[in-house]
């Protein structure tokens, strides 16, 4: 089974359901922990951050009443989703993730080599997503309590690159604009356009550039330990050959270095499982769902995959002349 092909199929299906689902009477609710933009008309499922930010924009005492219960309910549903699929939301569902993966395929097709941040840079920017997540809570609270101007309402929706981008797939161009209403809206909506631009340009240099800073990834990473998907490593079987690190779009070095840690769903992992496919050592890496193992590293399977064409997007096998 070629997991990367399966993953692409699932990503395309999720994209269709999330963007066009409304046309087929599909509604997964508005509490999904992924960038399924609610600004898409008749979407099949919506991102929970929209409602979450609005619910947070209230005076503090209100949270002791009905408002608090509504907030907990929203958070609870999103958390349940996060436990069931944890990081698979990023690697298998997220439409922005899919777009970046497709652009990566284009880059490879154009024979442009990937590049990576230096280990130091990569390490330094790890905390950005958590700072963004903290601001995601603090800014709406500030608005609700009169500390910050109303122009900052739902700041992450204004800043999110999915908002201008995804409605385009339904022919809705109204979101692809900068809102000149005030300086905050200008900064935020302008930022969103810049992020869209960055997504397109950086995809020709790096893999999944935006994901490392995504506050949704930070939110999902809170469930790494209790999520149903897990990525196990048997350090004794590992030769530290570095194949997994090279394959990792999120540049997670622990996957190669770690010899003792058992669960390798680290804060940046998006569960794309490329590492398991790139691993040539029997049983060194293993992907499980709720304790049930569904993919194991295997030398023979690895070599068979390599023979048939590179694991991910690489060159296909040439037909043998007979």
């Amino acid at each position: 089974m070629n997991i990367q092909r399966l993953r692409l199929a699932v990503q395309l299906l999720s994209f269709t359901v999330l963007i066009y689902g409304g046309l087929f009477a599909i509604d997964l609710g508005n509490r999904l922990p992924t960038f399924a933009c609610s600004y898409v008309p008749d979407h099949g499922g919506g991102c929970f951050l929209v409602g979450f930010q609005h619910m947070l924009s209230r005076p503090l005492p209100e949270f002791l009443g009905e408002q608090g219960i509504r907030l907990l309910k929203a958070l609870g549903i999103a958390s349940l989703w996060a436990i069931v699929l944890n990081k698979a939301w990023c690697g298998w569902v997220c439409p922005i993730g899919l777009l970046q993966d497709l652009l990566t395929k284009l880059r490879v097709w154009l024979s442009i080599d990937m590049s990576r941040f230096s280990w130091m840079t990569r390490h330094r920017y790890k905390s950005v997503k958590y700072i963004l997540l903290a601001l995601l809570v603090l800014i709406p609270l500030g608005i609700g309590n009169g500390l910050i101007s109303r122009d900052w309402t739902a700041p992450y929706c204004q800043l999110c690159p999915a908002r201008p981008l995804l409605p385009l797939f339904r022919g809705d161009t109204t979101q692809f604009a900068i809102n000149f209403l005030s300086i905050p809206t200008m900064l935020l909506t302008g930022g969103a356009i810049i992020l869209v631009g960055l997504m397109f340009t950086t995809s020709f240099v790096k893999r999944r550039f935006l994901c490392s800073y995504c506050p949704m990834l930070a939110f999902l990473s809170l469930f790494d330990k209790i999520g149903l998907f897990s990525l196990k490593k048997d350090g004794d079987k590992c030769t530290r050959c570095g194949n997994c690190y090279r394959a990792c779009p999120m540049e997670i070095r622990e996957i190669e270095e770690e010899k003792t840690l058992k669960n390798l769903v680290t804060q940046d992992c998006i569960l794309c499982l490329r590492c398991v496919e790139a691993c040539p050592e029997n049983m060194a890496l293993e992907a499980q769902f709720a304790g049930f193992s569904f993919l194991k590293a295997d030398a023979e399977a690895f070599l068979a995959r390599q023979d048939a064409g590179a694991a991910g997007t690489g060159t296909r096998r040439r037909r043998k002349k007979k």
Partner: peptide
């Protein structure tokens, strides 16, 4: 020890070879 071709670009393959 085995070379793992991932993206299959020239740089990727050379790096894979070097690391192997």
């Amino acid at each position: 020890d085995m070379v793992s071709v991932d993206e299959g670009t020239m740089g990727d393959m050379l790096m894979a070879i070097a690391e192997r």
